[in-house]
Computed example of a mutant assay.
Amino acid sequence: MGKMIDAAAFRNAMAQLGAAVNVVTTDGPSGLAGVTASAVCSVTDAPPTLLVCINRGSSAHPVFERNGVLCVNTLAAHQDGISDHFAGRSGLSGAKRFEGIDWQRLLTGAPVLAGAGAAFDARIVKRVEHGTHSVFFAEVLAISPSAPDTGGLIYYGRRYHPVGHLRRQQPKMA
Rank of each mutant, 00 (worst) to 15 (best):
L113D: 06
L92W: 04
A20P: 04
L32R: 14
D84H: 10
E99T: 15
A77K: 04
G88N: 04
F64M: 09
L106N: 08
T26D: 04
T74I: 11
L51H: 04
T74Q: 05
L75F: 03
A114Y: 06
G115V: 13
V35R: 02
A119P: 06
K96H: 09
R105M: 09
V112W: 10
L92S: 11
L51I: 15
N55G: 09
N55I: 04
I82M: 10
T49G: 06
C53P: 07
H78I: 08
H61R: 12
G88K: 06
Q79I: 04
V52I: 15
I54M: 12
N67C: 01
L92A: 12
D27N: 14
V112F: 11
G88E: 01
L50F: 12
I54T: 07
A116V: 09
T26K: 05
V72C: 00
G117A: 15
Q16L: 15
C53N: 11
V72N: 01
A95G: 14
G31P: 13
H61S: 06
V43T: 07
I82T: 11
Q104P: 00
A33L: 10
G18C: 13
A60I: 03
L107P: 09
L106D: 02
S90E: 03
W103K: 11
S59A: 15
A76G: 09
D45A: 15
G34Y: 02
S42L: 04
R97F: 00
G115T: 02
D84F: 01
D102L: 13
R97K: 14
A114I: 11
F64P: 05
L107S: 13
T108C: 03
S38M: 08
T36F: 01
T74G: 01
V35D: 08
P47F: 10
I82H: 03
G68K: 09
H78Y: 12
A46V: 13
G31H: 13
A110T: 10
F98A: 07
F86E: 09
A60Q: 00
L75K: 02
P48N: 08
A37L: 13
V69N: 03
R89W: 02
N22Y: 06
P47G: 03
G68S: 10
A20S: 11
H85Y: 08
F64I: 10
G68F: 08
A20N: 05
N73C: 05
G117L: 15
D27A: 15
G81L: 02
A60W: 01
L106E: 07
S93P: 02
G88S: 06
T74A: 06
L50P: 12
G91V: 09
A39M: 14
G117E: 13
P111G: 04
E99Y: 07
L51S: 11
T49W: 09
A118E: 02
A37V: 15
L75P: 00
T44L: 07
D84N: 11
L106V: 01
A60M: 02
W103H: 07
A33S: 13
R56M: 12
E65L: 14
T108D: 01
G100I: 00
P111N: 14
V63F: 00
V24S: 03
P29G: 15
C71N: 02
A46Y: 07
A95D: 12
H61W: 11
G68T: 08
N22A: 00
V43K: 15
R56A: 13
Q79M: 13
L106G: 04
K96A: 15
